[in-house]
Design a protein around this nucleic acid. Structure first.
Length: 570
RNA sequence: GGGCCCGUAGCUCAACGGUCAGAGCAGACCGCUCAUAACGGUUUGGUUGCAGGUUCGAAUCCUGCCGGGCCUACCA
């Protein structure tokens, strides 16, 4: 038994996430956490909402609420959706928690003491009308290069030229439309990432088993142009962690907060403290401090590719630069993007399926299965309703659901609703055991390596093996000549249902629970020995025939949904 | 502009220097009738984007070209 710390990239607070966000971090992290728990390992799986930054303040303003109240509400909404998808976080925290405030300020003090923070005076656009400094993206104007009239302050979407907000002709605030923007002087703290470039490079070079996606992005940032740049870690905002050195004031930084990308990863750690505070655990440091028991912990992070620089560079600088024995990540699993029907998911245009809508139209396991079995591991992948319908109907309804249906119903009609007695294994059964043993080992290997699509394919193969067995054994034919042998075949088939429920639980937790309940299984332990696992339900054991496990998606539904989610959400 | 990734059967993907390039879906045929008209078997289908090169041997390594995607540091 090993100890596994797992974190999923923390979702931003300003709205409901779409399926692309879900499959990029939280869902695979949950798959891995459930699998490891199933194997009997000790797991701490943490996630939280990322609540600071300009977008949160603006979203709150639009909702007509104080930002703290808005965040609390949205945290509740996201927590409920996470629950709906069966995301089994040990704790779902908040980056705005007091624990994170304290820890973020603590790290800042340590980094400052280590000489890794410097002050920089710079000029930024300020909007008196909005009463705030505006990030480059919140300023629009006419592109000096091509004349496009909606160029953003960081880049022109029309000619792709990179811009500085001061380059724009007739700049205006995208929040209020105000044009009375002025350049103001302001002072910020920068994290001297450049000072740790060599340490980071050496650390990345040692990670030979990480996904190419992860290491290539990290190396790009390390070596691009003049190398790793220092990064501003403070902002002129009201909502956030106040800039302090530990619990001491930071002269010159009054009224400023830490940049959300500085405090967000620290929340991974603070979330452990929240977990204890919530009464769910009693010692978070044994997961996070290598001097307090975290030496034997394996720490795995999950994220979309856009998050990789912060997890391979900025956050490790925070950890290493502190000079304290915090647990550093051991493995980073990153994902590409899931596109929607020929384009990108778009939150602003309501294009694609969002978590709340997904749960309205179908059970969570449909989404979990499809998203995970087609996860964008090696390249971007695409959601289409045709593929979704076809794959889900085939894999879940026809292969798994129908297997459960045919064996339970056959037993009920010939032997009643209890596991039949009699008969003994022959060559066919021994071959099945050998086949399953091999397939389960392959499944475990893929899950251990977090090769999600491969694991799904192997699980499906295990389901298919059940149908192959029934076809070959043909208990409906055997029953006429040799009821004892038919009883043995049916008993084996019913035990396969229990085995499938156990093996499928990481992918299909809700369906797995339904199956175990229907079949009346008391033991849902991972099968260490297949032969033994297939004797778990003894002769005479009562069961019930479950309702249709997976109703098929009809053509009319598919067509209606395709239209409904094509764009423009309320 | 720079960098990275990808281009393999109609579709989604696997093989990452070595037996006839594999699997699922879709298609065709056969079988079964327990089952959600479900299941099983057989089978059609590929000069592995193009052109060169290295090698006894290349989908795999190198060069160039064509096509697609992503990233490029003040959104998070």
């Amino acid at each position: 038994m090993a100890r596994h710390l797992i974190t999923s990239a923390i979702p931003y607070i300003n709205g409901i996430k779409h399926l692309g966000n879900l499959v990029g971090s939280q869902l695979p992290a949950d798959l891995y956490a459930r699998y490891l728990r199933g194997r009997g390992h000790e797991v701490l799986f943490l996630c939280a909402t990322d609540e600071h930054g300009t977008p949160a303040e603006i979203a709150a303003q639009k909702a007509g609420k104080p930002v703290a109240e808005y965040c609390e509400e949205m945290h509740g909404v996201q927590a409920a959706l996470a629950d709906g998808f069966g995301l089994s976080f040990d704790h779902f925290g908040r980056s705005s928690s007091p624990q994170n405030h304290r820890l973020t300020q603590h790290f800042a003090a340590r980094l400052d003491a280590a000489g890794l923070i410097r002050e920089v005076t710079e000029h930024q656009m300020y909007s008196p009308t909005d009463g705030r400094f505006l990030p480059d993206r919140y300023i629009e104007g006419t592109c000096p290069n091509c004349g496009f009239d909606s160029a953003r302050g960081d880049q022109c979407d029309n000619c792709t030229k990179q811009l500085d907000p001061t380059d724009l002709i007739n700049p205006r605030s995208t929040i209020s439309g105000a044009t009375d923007l002025e350049l103001r002087e302001t002072k910020h703290l920068y994290l001297r990432q450049s000072a740790m470039k060599d340490d980071l490079a050496a650390w990345i070079d040692r990670q030979t088993d990480w996904p190419v996606l992860t290491t290539s992005i990290a190396k790009k940032w390390l070596n691009d142009g003049d190398g790793l740049q220092d990064r501003g870690i403070t902002r002129d905002l009201d909502w956030g962690v106040p800039v302090q050195r530990g619990d001491q004031p930071w002269p010159g930084m009054e009224g400023k907060v830490f940049y959300v990308w500085f405090d967000a990863p620290i929340e991974y750690i603070a979330c452990g403290a929240e977990w204890v505070e919530a009464g769910k655990g009693d010692d978070w440091e044994r997961w996070w401090r290598t001097d307090k028991g975290a030496d034997d912990v394996r720490y795995t992070q999950f994220m979309g590719k856009d998050n990789v620089p912060f997890h391979t560079l900025s956050f490790p600088v925070t950890i290493l630069g502190s000079g304290e024995p915090w647990k550093l990540v051991d493995y980073i699993k990153s994902f590409n993007y899931l596109n929607y029907d020929g384009g990108q998911f778009s939150t602003s245009r309501g294009r694609g399926v969002f978590m709340d809508q997904a749960l309205e139209i179908l059970p969570a396991d449909y989404w979990r299965w499809w998203l995970l079995s087609r996860a964008p591991e090696t390249s971007d992948s695409e959601f289409t309703w045709e593929a979704f319908q076809q794959d889900v109907n085939k894999d879940l309804a026809d292969v798994l659901g129908n297997f459960v249906s045919r064996i339970t119903k056959f037993c009920r009609s010939k032997f009643g609703e209890a596991v039949p007695e009699g008969g003994a294994y022959g060559a066919r059964e021994e071959a099945l055991l050998a086949d399953l043993t091999r397939r389960i080992a392959a499944y475990e290997k893929s899950m251990d390596a977090i090769e999600v699509r491969k694991a799904a394919a192997e699980l499906r193969g295990i389901w298919v093996a059940g149908n192959e067995y029934l076809q070959a054994a043909a208990p409906w034919a055997t029953f006429k000549e040799d009821p004892q042998t038919a009883a043995m075949q049916v008993r084996l088939g019913l035990n396969l249902v229990r085995l499938y429920a156990v093996l499928s639980a990481p992918f299909l937790p809700f369906s797995s629970a339904r199956l175990l309940e229907a079949i009346g299984a008391e033991d849902a332990g991972w099968p260490n020995d297949v032969g033994e696992a297939l004797r778990a339900l003894p002769a005479g054991h009562a069961f019930t025939v479950p309702e249709v496990m997976f109703a098929k998606i009809a053509d009319e539904d598919r067509a209606a949904w395709a239209e409904r989610f094509a764009g423009v959400r309320g």
